[in-house]
Amino acid sequence: MSKAWAVLLVAAAVVRAQDARSIVEESQRRARSGSQRYEGTLEVIDAKRKVTTKRWIYERLGSAGNSKAVLRFTAPAEVKGVALLIHNHPDRASDQWMWTPAVQRERRIAYQDRKTRFFGTDFTFEDLEERDVDRSTYRMLGEEAIEGVPCWKIESTPKPEARSQYTRLYLWIRKPDYVAAQIDCFQRDRVIRRIRYSDVEKVQNIWTARRIEVHDLTRDSRTILRLEKLEYDVTLPADLFTLQALRRER
């Protein structure tokens, strides 16, 4: 999950002045890996500052918008075993299925539901998709520092075929390592969600943000995701990313 937008953005490229699209492309290239696995800890802080914690294991095979991923909850007990299977496509929105062990059923997440909140967090289902750079258009807005790190500020507008809930996004990409520092998600002219990436570390030669904070500005709630036991290019069997595998894992 941590790579949802980071994968899009975190990369390396030529250090010279570039246009907006090539910066995003480079960010994506630098984040590329054959597979990924991590254990995530989610902290959801609602508007009343009540904190709930969830844990999951995330496994991904492939990258850059052409990948398959499984996200399986491990805690708390009431959601243990619930899983989400994502098949990302470079040319269209991803296919997503949710597996609920208690009823032994998978259900398809419809495109129309991609804007709904994911697992009670401040992420939406759409935010979990890996999007190919070609599915948006880009415009350079300028340069701004985020937490003292110089960044490019880029406007990204999803193409109609992407069927995104967002009208546009503002991306801040760190100049030193091409890792995304912040994303503001707009619906019409209003920022509805702000995603901040921090604790950037180099893991197996890939600069990765180990802390992602999503702030839902409408609900005034926050979700903090911490990536633990992060590994890239691990061996994962392809048949792990199928509905049959979801049904097997109980």
Partner: peptide, 15 residues
């Protein structure tokens, strides 16, 4: 129970 109902998946996870 906000953790249950506000989170559709948790609601779904417990039939």
């Amino acid at each position: 129970d906000e953790t249950i109902v506000d989170d559709p998946l948790v609601f779904i996870a417990q039939p």
